[in-house]
Design a protein around this nucleic acid. Structure first.
Lengths: 349, 349
DNA sequence: CGTTTAGACCTAAACATTTAGACCTAAACG
DNA sequence: CGTTTAGGTCTAAATGTTTAGGTCTAAACG
C-alpha cells in the first residue's frame, strides 16, 4: 500500500491538514514543523493520490488533446508542442484520436471523460457550428484549425488567404494549369457544385473546403478559368493516397504546370509519384505543400510550403484554454496566427 | 453542477447502489427498474466522475505512454497504435515526453503521476537495468525497445540481429565501405573504445549501441575491416542532424559504397544531403534505413529498411501490461518481435 | 492585568463512487 | 404451515484529499 497523507501526519506527529499545507506550501508553517513533515514525506516516499485530489477540488490537472489522425507528421508536431507547453503549466496531456470513429468528437464534447479532464483541445474534422452548439454544457474547449463557428474559442490560420497566396505564388512562377491535390471528395452521384457551402453535410473537412476556396479565388482573380479536372479529390490526407491518385492522374491527363498539395504529407506522396513517372521537379512541373512540417525541407527537392509559427499557435491554444478554465463563461475568442510562404526548390523556375 | 449518482437515484426512486448496479451492469436488476434508472440517467445527462471512481477502486482506466521525442515519425506511429489499441480495451492514454529532461524517466517510474495511471509503457533512452532496479515499488511497466534488463516486462526487436542483417544485405550488394549513421556520440576527450559496454554511463542510447554492435558484427563476419572513420556519430535522431553531418562528411571524405542509417528519419536527412551534393542513389551509393516508417516508401528513391509488425509490437506491449496490471508480481516476460529487411530502390544495384 | 491579534495547528465535513453486508419479499420446498 | 432460497434492493462505510471553521498559544496592546 502506498503511503497516504494520514501516514505522513502520524509519522511527523502533526495533523493531515498540516501535511497538506506543507505540500501545497500555502499557509504559515513553522520551519521546524515543515522540516519534520518533509522528512516524513521522503521517508515514506509519499506521492499524492491524484484521484482523491481531483475528486476533492474538482480539477484533475489534465487536459485532453483530440486530433483526427495521429499518424500525420503535422499531428506529431502539434502533440509534441502541446505536451511540452502544457507541462510547463503543470498540466498532463491525455490524447485521443477522432478520425477512426466519426462521432468520437461528439462523445468527447458532451460526455466522455469530461470529468477526468479540465479542458479539451480539439482539432475538428466533422464538428461545425451545429455540432459545438447542440452539445449541452461544454467543458472548456479550444478548437484548433479553421472552422466556422463562434461558440467556443479558437486558434487558426487564415486557410483561405494562405491557399490563395500559395496559388498566387504558383501563378507568379508562370503556371496556368495548376492542379489542387486534396480537394473534398464529392459523394458519388452528386455534382461538384455547392462544395464550399460549409454546411454540416458538406463533403470533406473544413480545411479542405477552405483551401479549395482560396485556390479558386486566386485563379479567378488572375482570370484563369477554373478547370474542375484539375481538382484532385482526396479526403484521407495520407501520402499513400496522394501517391496513388497523382500517379493515376499522370497516366490519364496532360502534365499540369504545378501541383498545389493541401498538405506537405500529400506533397510527399505527389513527389514520389512524379519521381516514379520520371517527371523532374521543378524543371517539368512545380510542387507546393502546406504546413511546413519538419520533413519538408528534406524532401527531394525541398518543398515550397505555407509556414506558420506552430509554437505560437499551440501557445495561443493553451492560453485560450486557460482563460476558459478560469472563467467558464468568458466570451469566446478567436486568434489568427499569421502565415507566410516559404519558397524552396520545388517551385524554383 | 453535474448530476451525480445520488441525483439519478432520487429521480428514479431507487438507491445509489442500484444506479451503480445498472451502470456497471453486474447484478440482477429487474428490467423495469433498470428502465427507470436508464431513463433518469439520460434525462439528467449523467456522466460518471472518473476521479471518484478512480479513488474508490484504485484504478483510473488510464495508462501512460512515455516516448523520448514525439516529433519522430516513429513515435507518431507508436502513439497512433497505442491509442487505438488501448481504446479497444477501454483505456485512456496519457502521453509524456522524456528526452527534453533526462531524469523525467525516473520521475515517471518512481513518483510522478503514478496514482493517476494504472500502467506505464516506456520507451527508454537513459534507463537501463540499474535505473529500473533502483526505483522502489514500481507501477506496472512495460519497456518497449531494446534494453538490457530483466526486471520488468519488455517487448523489443532484436536490434543487433536486425542491424547485422541489414549490413549483410549491403555487403551482399557488393558494398565494402559502409558508413553507419547514428552511432553513439563519444564524449569529447575519450576514445571510441568501450562504446558498447552497455553500462549505465555508456554514451548514446541503447538502440544506437546495439545497432552499432550488429553493424560491426556483420563487417567482422565478412572479414571487412572496421574503419572508425565510417562511423558517423549522432545522438539526436532527427533529419536535420543527419543532413548536416552527412553533408559535412561528403566534403571531407571519399564517397562510401553505402550509408546504413540507424533510423528512417536519419536516412531521409541523408538522402537529402546526397541529393544536394549531386550524388545519385542508388547509382553512386546505396542508402538503407531502420523502422520502415510510413514515409519511407515515398522517399526518393524508396528506402530499403528494417521492418517489423508494429501493430503486433504494440499489441504485445499492451498484453504484457495487462498481465502486469492483473498480477503485480507476475514474472517479467520478454517478447521479441521478428524483423525483416524490406528491399526497395535505395539499395538496388 | 485583561483583551486583542496573529500565527500555528487541528477537527470534521465534503467530494462521488463502489462494496460489504444487511434486509426485505415472494416463490419453492419439505 | 414454517423454512429455505434467491432475487432485488438498501444502508453504511470506505477511498485520500482539501477546506471551512475552530482551538490554542504567546506576544502585543491599552
Amino acid at each position: 500500500m502506498r503511503a497516504t497523507v494520514k501516514d505522513v501526519a502520524k509519522l511527523a506527529g502533526v495533523s493531515p491538514k498540516t501535511v497538506s499545507n506543507v505540500i501545497n506550501g500555502v499557509v504559515f508553517v513553522r520551519p521546524e514543523t515543515r522540516a519534520r513533515v518533509e522528512q516524513a514525506l521522503s521517508e515514506l516516499d509519499y506521492v499524492p493520490n491524484m484521484s482523491a485530489r481531483g475528486l476533492r477540488n474538482g480539477r484533475s490537472g489534465m487536459i485532453a488533446l483530440a486530433l483526427p489522425d495521429l499518424l500525420r507528421p503535422y499531428s506529431a508536431e502539434i502533440t509534441h508542442l502541446v505536451v511540452e507547453l502544457a507541462h510547463e503549466r503543470g498540466w498532463g496531456v491525455q490524447i485521443e484520436q477522432t478520425a477512426a470513429e466519426p462521432n468520437r468528437e461528439f462523445e468527447l464534447l458532451s460526455k466522455g471523460r469530461a470529468h477526468l479532464v479540465d479542458g479539451l483541445i480539439l482539432n475538428p474534422v466533422n464538428v461545425d457550428d451545429s455540432a459545438v452548439m447542440t452539445a449541452g454544457p461544454l467543458p472548456p474547449v479550444v478548437l484548433i484549425g479553421d472552422v466556422d463557428q463562434d461558440v467556443v474559442s479558437q486558434v487558426a490560420i487564415d486557410n483561405v488567404a494562405a491557399a490563395r497566396d500559395m496559388t498566387k505564388h504558383l501563378l507568379d512562377q508562370g503556371c496556368r494549369r495548376i492542379a489542387a491535390v486534396g480537394t473534398p471528395e464529392v459523394p458519388r452521384g452528386s455534382s461538384g457544385a455547392g462544395v464550399l457551402a460549409g454546411t454540416a453535410d458538406a463533403p470533406g473537412t473544413a480545411a479542405s473546403r477552405l483551401r479549395t476556396a482560396g485556390y479558386r479565388q486566386a485563379l479567378e482573380e488572375a482570370g484563369v478559368p477554373n478547370d474542375p479536372a484539375l481538382e484532385i479529390n482526396l479526403d484521407r490526407w495520407r501520402p499513400e493516397g496522394a501517391a496513388t491518385v497523382v500517379g493515376k492522374y499522370l497516366t490519364e491527363h496532360e502534365l499540369p504546370d504545378a501541383f498545389f498539395c493541401f498538405t506537405d504529407t500529400l506533397a510527399s506522396g505527389a513527389l514520389s509519384a512524379l519521381w516514379a513517372a520520371g517527371v523532374n521537379v521543378p524543371k517539368q512541373t512545380l510542387v507546393a505543400g502546406f504546413d511546413n512540417i519538419l520533413e519538408s525541407q528534406f524532401m527531394i527537392p525541398p518543398l515550397t510550403t505555407v509556414d506558420f509559427d506552430r509554437r505560437e499557435f499551440v501557445r495561443s491554444a493553451l492560453d485560450l484554454l486557460a482563460e476558459r478554465m478560469a472563467d467558464r463563461d468568458a466570451a469566446p475568442r478567436r486568434v489568427i496566427i499569421p502565415h507566410r510562404i516559404v519558397e524552396r526548390t520545388s517551385t524554383a523556375r
